[in-house]
Design a protein around this nucleic acid. Sequence first.
DNA 1: TCTGGGGTCCTAGGACCC
DNA 2: TCTGGGGTCCTAGGACCC
Length: 419
Amino acid sequence: MKLFGLIDCNNFYASCERVFDPTLEHKPVVVLSNNDGCVIARSNEAKKLGVVMGTPFYQCKKLFEKHDIKIFSSNYELYGDLSHRVMSSITHFYPEIEVYSIDEAFVSLDSFDHFNLIEYAKIVKSKVKQWTGIPISIGLGRTKTLAKIANHIAKKFTEAGVYMLTDPVVIENILAKFPINNIWGIGRQLAKKLNARGIMTARDLRDADAKLMRREHSVVLEKLIHELRGEACLPLEIIQPKKNIMCSHSFGKPLAEFDDIFAALTNYASKATLKLRRQFSRAQGIYVFLHTNPHNTKKPYYFNQMSLRFAEASNSTSFIIQQARLCLEKIFKTGHDYKKAGVMLLDLVPEDINQIDIITSQDIIKNDKVMATLDQINQRLGKHTIFYASEGVQKNWELRRDYISPRCSTRVEEAKTVY
DNA sequence: TCTGGGGTCCTAGGACCC
DNA sequence: TCTGGGGTCCTAGGACCC
């Protein structure tokens, strides 16, 4: 019998901050987005104090001070490492796993019929906590969509943090109380349209005419209805390489000079190209964009973008930086204060089936060696030991991170000392 | 003063081909 | 006067996710 599990880390970023600083236990903790822009994670204590997800930092500073809420800039190096540890711990218990995001994974329990699934899940939960320090919740259901709902219940209404939603009578009751906007795949727009038709709960949606919904909305909604009925339409997807890779950031302060923005793009292009090589791909094109601050009502908003196709797929940082520069030269206009820019590598293909042109193939082989050496040095001696000069040393574009915690699980020099 | 970043999938419409 | 139809590919934009 088909059975899916959804495993989700509780308040993931806030929990990560706690792992290496136990004094944060039972205290309200929040984590800010890049540039310390807005709140993107909250511990349960912070939620109770009324900290709302996505609120700009400057709007809740007072609340933070009043309740002595602990603040952190986001530390993706730390979160990425802990995520990896959590996922490999889960694989130990559930070998068929789809890592869905940094803090979530679907697992298949099709072959677990003879297990006491709930007790087993409780063991998984306690082992993951013991091995990684991260608390998780587990929801089980006949489809991914139902497993998501079960996880929601596990997190909100159970002591154990584990919930199995397979009994038809129980499903009936829960779906009748579950608002559609909490269903995975129903966003704000769809919820509004469906509410207007009188579809308010997951049960209403499940009992709607699937074919009609397909015609009037989309095939995605049709599948979702079947999923709510317990007919699995969304399979477990074992990790596939990304089709595009993006790196973009807001700048710590507005930038007006071409050279500063090119320096930032050099850094983004380097990061994106490193990711590209890590998944053994090459890109066939590039997309570059930049824009001014959309929230500034006093100055006109300027946005521009450009994409280029390459004659030949590439994973060379120098080549990608050159191409990014070509794009930037076309879209940059003087006289604006830019707030954000980004690079996306497009239409990725596996590195080995790359069609190599006979004349240029020598260059590719040479380049591959240079890139491998660069990556090795940076891996052994620390990220950013070697970087491209066009990135500059002044780094006017750097992010604001006033509340950063140490990257103690990935950098020796930032490790904690235990006395 | 101060508002994140990285993805995927689907659809509609235009260009082009036979 | 009367001017086909179907398929495919590409792109832009929207909606959704975490």
